[in-house]
Nucleic acid binder design. Sequence first.
DNA 1: ATATATTACTTGCAAAATGCAATTAACTAG
DNA 2: CTAGTTAATTGCATTTTGCAAGTAATATAT
Lengths: 148, 148
Amino acid sequence: MENKRELFQVLTRRFGLLNKNCCSIGAVDISSVQSHILYEIDKQTSPSMQQVAESIAMDITTFSRQIQTLIKMELVKKTPSSADKRVYILSLTVQGKFVATTIDESMNAYLEEVFSHMNEFERETVIRSIKLLNQAMSKSSVCCTPLL
Amino acid sequence: MENKRELFQVLTRRFGLLNKNCCSIGAVDISSVQSHILYEIDKQTSPSMQQVAESIAMDITTFSRQIQTLIKMELVKKTPSSADKRVYILSLTVQGKFVATTIDESMNAYLEEVFSHMNEFERETVIRSIKLLNQAMSKSSVCCTPLL
DNA sequence: ATATATTACTTGCAAAATGCAATTAACTAG
DNA sequence: CTAGTTAATTGCATTTTGCAAGTAATATAT
């Protein structure tokens, strides 16, 4: 029986580091958190502030301020919802979309490079395993219930 | 070809969240970063400040201050090295060891719970996959070179 | 319909975390 | 012995964080 935590600790630390490193696109300097926010806005369809904040398990007040920053950077747009005047719909600006896409591409490029150190069989096994893990985690009751 | 980044994004976010949640042991309140520090000190043998800071890819000045905090909390001890008087050897106090062990146990308990949603074959496949991934990442040239 | 409670989001702090530049002390090399 | 490194600390100044409190809009109850 190996120490599972050790395996995960190393894996996630590496991935977190990657997230940190690859977030400077030209003149635009993006923090790791901001990259996560851009990612989620891009992924969801017309999300409200709450929705995005919740999906990355971030305090709403901190989130609100991060959004203000991203708006100043002209990466994010906040549109008042017509259905409910309390809520704001978040979306990426053209530049924001560009930044998000660029980050996504370099992340995937990195991952491709990582996977290039494996053979085809290993590649498929690993991908399937990560999916399995994600499924198992979402079934779990212990943690992460507010997440995703 | 699926989006690999998506899979990893979800996985690591969940794991990061877990790290955040499970870091309050009784009266002691530990931040996620501090938990990483305790983990590394526990894992390495008589490490210096530099060594630990580097292994978690943390700025040495921030690290220095975190260590000061952890010493005030009586979780970490700093012993001057006899070989080189510039360096300090880090170690856990009894209480620090206890906290580190408790965190480790609850992380592993959580992971056991996650793995309980799989059958034996899946479990082994997933574990092997994570190992493969870690190996591949350490071989990679793109990122994470300072790490581990 | 109108008073009450909820909800979505924003601000006011005050604490914590971060990182660059500069400093101190100790070691190493010429 | 002097000059150059290295390990670690401190001085800022900025950024991030999160609780408490506030505002405005919607939902619920009487």
